[in-house]
């Protein structure tokens, strides 16, 4: 909880998404006739997107029309509830029911897939699990070395092929290896790819199928990594990755910057894929379980005196 707050400090401060909303509300005693417009602007500038913003505002508008939202606090609560409601669609940490549980990690270039795997491995290792990393990014220069360095740091086995090797084959081998050593989890890295490259997306579908051949039911989890600095294009990423693969969750990275990651609201609303983890820094332990309540709570800064004062 503390870590989450720390990571989200930026988002909570004056310029933060809900922080600004709050400043907006606290600054006025009565409801401003332009309030809805201004909320809209705040939502839009947090990358929430036009469609989701309208969705969120529908209730507010209706409530205002019915005179249910008599003051700013009530508008505040209504908005918060609506936002949290969208994000509360299951999720939680990895379900480690199968042995080994195979987790496939996908996403566009540069969102932080390999780093997320490194952090996830650290986390699982700390929980006493045996982890095998599969270096499925055989395309990008030195991606394998990057994962190997993480493997060394965390202290877990990395199965890799040569550069340019078939990613499916590498991950297949990794799953076999995990079975041999009776590991708990296989974390499979894949090369970053733009969701619009049909052939590369087909390759992912194939890789996923190959995993199923190595182990019945694999991949048990398919996580899409999203960069919190991304804007509306993340919607398109989610839509097309979901078309190619049965996504079971999202990982939202780079939340330690000034970006708000508001786009996940839209993705959760539209696709119903829950956020599972958030990345809040470059260190190995900067990965947190995503909890909608905490997330919204932290963004809102309610019950946190220092932020209230700042707002």
């Amino acid at each position: 909880m503390d870590g989450l707050r720390k990571g989200l400090t930026k988002a909570r401060e004056k310029e933060g998404f809900f922080g600004r909303l709050k400043a907006l509300f606290l600054g006025k005693k009565e409801i401003d006739p332009n309030l809805v417009d201004r909320i809209e602007e705040v939502l839009l500038s947090s990358d929430v997107g036009v469609k989701t913003t309208q969705l969120l505002l529908e209730d507010i508008r209706a409530g205002l029309a019915r005179n249910e939202l008599s003051d700013n606090d009530k508008v505040w609560d209504a908005l918060r509830q609506r936002a949290a409601g969208i994000l509360e669609i299951g999720g939680g940490g990895l379900a480690l029911d199968a042995r080994p549980t195979v987790v496939m990690v996908v996403g566009v270039n540069g969102v932080g897939k390999t780093t997320t795997i490194g952090k996830l491995a650290t986390k699982l290792k700390a929980e006493g699990k045996t982890v095998v990393l599969a270096a499925g990014d055989t395309f990008r220069a030195a991606a394998v070395q990057q994962l190997e360095i993480w493997g060394k740091r965390v202290g877990c086995e990395v199965v890799s092929g040569k550069d340019g090797a078939n990613p499916g084959a590498v991950i297949f081998d990794a799953i076999q290896r995990a079975k041999e050593i009776n590991a708990d989890v296989v974390l499979a890295d894949t090369a970053g790819r733009l969701h619009t490259k049909t052939n590369l997306m087909e390759e992912l579908t194939k890789v996923s199928r190959t995993m199923g051949k190595a182990l019945q039911g694999a991949p048990h989890e398919t996580l899409l990594v999203l960069d919190a600095t991304n804007g509306q294009n993340a919607m398109s990423q989610a839509a097309l990755f979901r078309e190619a693969l049965p996504l079971t969750g999202l990982v939202l990275t780079k939340l330690d910057g000034t970006a708000k990651g508001g786009i996940v609201l839209g993705i959760c609303a539209e696709h119903g894929i829950p956020v599972r983890y958030i990345g809040i820094g470059e260190r190995a332990d900067d990965l947190r379980d995503f909890a909608p309540d905490e997330f919204v709570e932290a963004l809102l800064g309610q019950g946190d005196d220092t932020t209230d004062a700042a707002a």
Partner: peptide
């Protein structure tokens, strides 16, 4: 700059 960047582009 990543062309997929959102509103944060300006701050960055």
């Amino acid at each position: 700059i990543d062309s997929m960047i959102g509103q944060d582009a300006v701050k960055t």
